[in-house]
Structures are given as C-alpha cells and as structure tokens.
Amino acid sequence: MLLIRPIKAADYSALLQIATESGAGFTSLPMDEQKLSHKIAHSEQSFAADIKSPGEQGYLFVMEDTQTGEILGTTGIEAAVGLNNPFYHFHKSTVVHHSAELKAVNPVEVLTLCNDYTGSTEVCSLFLREPFRVGLNGRFLSKVRFMFMAEQPQRFAKLVIAEMRGEADENGIPPFWHWLQNNFFNMEFSKADYLIGVGKKGFIADLMPRYPIYVGLLPVEAQQVIGKVHHNTMPALKLLEKEGFTHRGYVDLFDAGPTVEAQLKQIKSVRLSHKIKVQISTDEQLTGPSQLGICNCETEQFRATFSDNCYLDKASHTLVVTSAIADALNVQNGDNVRYLNLDKGAK
C-alpha cells in the first residue's frame, strides 16, 4: 500500500536522494545537507503546532510504500511565503505608448520586479521518483496537499500559488538566465540557484535591475521562454490547471517559468473532497466502483492513501473501507475521514 504522511527525521536519507534526483532548478529542495535537515525539523514543528492563522510554517509530506518502507516521492506546502525572506517575481504586463500628434499607439511588454505574492500559500516540492511515475501516484501526490488544506483551512492563506520550473538547455541552464548573468550577475547559475534554495536572497535586491525591462530588448532566446515550463514539469502544471490554477503573468526571476495561482476555496480538490464517517468492513476483498483518495482528519498524525477497496454507502452515509486501509489511516469505526474521487472526469 502507498501511504502519504508527514516527513520525519528518519526520512533524511530518502529526502537527500530525492534532492539529488530532482537536479538543478528545483530550488525548494537544495543539495545542502544542513538545509534539508532544517526543512525536516521545521516541518515536524509545523505539524505539531496549534495554528490559528498562516505564518512561517512549512509542511513536507512523503509517499511511502508500506511493504518495502521505500520513499517514492515528496510534496509540500509553505503556509505564507515572503514574511521573513523577500519573495520575488517578475510580472509581465503591457505598457501602451501613445502619440496623439503622430496618431500612433504602440503596446510593449515589460517585466517588473515585484513582491506581489507575499503572504500567499505556496504548494511546492512535488517530486515523484522516475520508477514510480505510474498510475495515480503523481496525481494523488499533488491532490493530497489540497485535501490537507481543505481539512485545515485556518493554516493557509486565501490565495494559493505554485512556481513552475522554467525551460533549460541540455546542461540545465535556463536560456533566460544568460542575459541576467551577462548584464547583472557575475556568477554561475548553479551558485545563484543554490543561494535561492538556502534562502540567501539578499543579492537579488542588490544586483537585480530596479526598473521595468522591455521584453523586446531581450535576446530572442530569453524572450521565447518567458512563461514556458520545463518539459519535466509539464505534468505537474497540467494537474494544477485541472485544479483551477491560472497564470496571470508572474514568472521566476532566473528561468522565467510561470507561477500559477488559485483561490483556496475554488481549488477543485478542496471543493470536491468531503468529510464522512468511516465504516470498517470484514471483507478484505472489497472493491468499489471508483479509486478514492482518503485521509484521516489529523494534523501531526496525518495519513492518506488511495484505493478502490472502498465504497460510499449512501444509506448510512458512511465510507466503507477494508481493515487494511483503516489501519494505514489509524482510524476506527465512526471516525471522520475525508475522501476525494480520483477517477478522471469525476464530478
């Protein structure tokens, strides 16, 4: 059985392996042992805290194969970004130059440095190891964050965002980075990427251009990747778009990948997940009509899985599950759980 749960200190080696496999550009999991250890400890503290409103909390989950103990992937949530460390983006917009005398109207695109997403909740750190990118694994690893947020809305902001990794060349260097490096930064991309990952962002305020940048003056290679995602990130973007996330012109400073956003209450998996009481069946061969994502209603002891070994009993308004699922979720008869239909096209 595949189980999603909060990360713990014993998962450090697995998280380091995931950080290694995710490669450059995946700044939320930097290749820094001290930073990764801190992320785990911070996540444990966040899950344990009694929270009334979003703050500096960070929640990191892992997907575990309960039979082998192997960690297959990770996914995370930052409750409110930019409260201590600045959270920068470029915003792409259109400025219209108008000359009444010449009867000329000339719209031009510009990039403006901003902190508009300060205080927003960010879903991040979604990475499923390549051998396990099958079936519903990736879909549930993404959706489980929204089930947790639906159950614990006081912990999160009204606006939820996700930064998508931008395009890069065969060496992992974003084409958008080259013009920044040549004109503003005297460092390699790997160093800038590392500094961002470990939270050292002061150099951005020191070196980044402070005035709007005319897109038409950038090299063609840089212009072409603004708002484009890395091919490995396309599946994650499509999942978020199906949840209702949209791109409103905000892009990453270094690779120009898009940042997408949605109102928490309007996210599909938030709207369509429901709380219900659980009923444990004695039939271990139980098979229902749909694959359901199911989680308990705990915080520090949060557990989630997906299976078709369950079904909705409309007469008793309960979710009937096998004892194996109940044990995995640490629930008993009559306990509340939250469920979500994972089948494609489910309403």
Rank of each mutant, 00 (worst) to 15 (best):
N182R: 13
T66C: 01
C310R: 02
N84D: 05
Q301E: 15
F254R: 13
V198W: 04
D65H: 14
I294T: 06
F203D: 01
Q181G: 07
D116C: 06
L264N: 02
L312W: 05
I196G: 00
E188W: 05
I213D: 03
H274M: 02
A192L: 10
F87H: 12
A80L: 11
V225H: 05
L2C: 02
K52W: 06
F185K: 12
N171G: 14
V144C: 09
C295P: 07
N84V: 07
P30G: 09
L340K: 07
C310M: 10
Q181W: 00
K103C: 07
L342P: 05
S316W: 02
A236S: 09
S307T: 15
V215F: 00
S273G: 08
T20C: 04
F26G: 06
Q279K: 09
L319A: 08
D50I: 10
A328K: 08
D308W: 13
V123W: 05
Q279T: 01
L195E: 14
S125C: 13
A79Q: 01
R129S: 14
A24I: 15
Q266S: 14
G69L: 08
T68N: 08
H98G: 06
Q67H: 10
L102Q: 12
C114L: 04
A100D: 13
V320H: 07
Q263T: 07
F156Q: 09
P131A: 10
K191D: 13
D283R: 00
L239E: 15
K344P: 02
T299M: 12
K103G: 12
R210F: 01
I18N: 10
R133W: 04
A328E: 07
K265N: 15
A19S: 10
P107S: 06
N137E: 02
P54R: 03
Q332M: 00
Y339F: 15
E188S: 11
P86L: 07
R271P: 06
L102K: 13
E188F: 06
P30Y: 07
E243D: 09
C297D: 09
N115Y: 00
L329N: 08
N183F: 00
A80Y: 11
T20W: 08
P235V: 04
T68R: 03
N186S: 10
R145T: 09
K344F: 08
L240V: 01
Y88G: 08
N115P: 00
I40W: 07
K143H: 09
S281T: 01
V108Q: 12
